[in-house]
């Protein structure tokens, strides 16, 4: 008799554990751009002054744990007309305890070299967009995998990926790349650095099936986030 009760209790314990396991497996990370629409949380994104780095600070005011994910390809749209829009280059998944604040450094890339990076320390007034699933997203997923550890090459110095993004979004040429690097590089190294990043970015684009000539040919706007028809709203009812 005792044995049977013993087995019963054991079985209940096993089943309860299995049930809690099933429950835990169902835990899903809520994509950030969905969560901020659906859940009351306080957040802001601060520019670090480079196109390749931004900081997200987020406070969870709810009574629940928040499990959030920021996918590669999420776009941060700057409201200042002179500042470049940014795209997230590395996915992040994180949890925030109820009533806690968390800071996360985001790897981002500028989308338009003709515009300046949002100034350091500025809170960016942004609009969140889901990933487009296009060639830029594919490029960033690849580069995120290939990128050496952050100790060797800090993400915010990943110039080849930045150059590859620009080649996809703008009519980028070598001169534009030199102009961008001029403030950061000694004049005697400028030709070499710009040339190196140009070649490395071309190789990255070849991996996603885009040839150099094709990049130049299609760079009349291509996947640039803003279009010249941004003012147009054809679903507006008068």
């Amino acid at each position: 008799m005792r044995k049977i009760y013993g087995y019963t209790i054991l079985a209940v314990l096993i089943l309860s554990f299995a049930a809690s396991k099933v429950h835990a497996d169902k835990l899903v990370y809520n994509p950030f751009y969905e969560a901020v629409k659906n859940i009351s949380i306080n957040w802001r994104i601060v520019s670090m002054g480079y196109p390749m780095e931004a900081e997200l600070s987020l406070r969870n005011d709810s009574n629940e744990y928040l499990n959030l994910s920021i996918p590669v390809g999420m776009r941060l749209k700057s409201s200042a007309p002179g500042d470049t829009d940014l795209i997230v280059g590395r996915s992040e998944a994180f949890s925030v305890a109820p009533h806690y604040e968390k800071k996360i450094r985001l790897v981002t890339f500028g989308l338009d070299p003709r515009k300046k990076s949002p100034p350091s320390g500025n809170v960016m007034n942004i609009e969140l967009m889901s990933p487009s699933g296009g060639k830029i997203d594919e490029l960033l997923k690849n580069s995120s995998k290939d990128r050496p550890s952050s100790l060797d090459v800090p993400d915010f110095l990943d110039y080849p990926t930045q150059a590859a993004v620009w080649k996809l979004t703008t009519p980028m040429d070598l001169q534009m790349m030199k102009d961008f690097f001029a403030p950061f590089v000694h004049p005697k190294d400028l030709q070499y650095s710009a040339g190196t990043y140009w070649r490395k970015s071309s190789l990255m684009l070849e991996k996603i099936g885009i040839e150099e000539g094709e990049v130049i040919a299609k760079s009349s706007g291509g996947e640039l986030f803003k279009t010249s028809w941004d003012f147009m709203d054809l679903t507006r009812k008068r």
């Binding site: 967009m129 487009s132 699933g133 640039l224 986030f225 803003k226 279009t227 028809w229 941004d230 147009m232 709203d233 054809l234 679903t235």
Partner: peptide, 20 residues
């Protein structure tokens, strides 16, 4: 999703052509 539509209106394109 399969790249068979244009994209003149960028992020608004799919919404616009679907509505029309």
């Amino acid at each position: 999703d399969n790249g068979k539509l244009h994209n003149d209106l960028g992020s608004k394109h799919l919404k616009t052509v679907t509505a029309w």
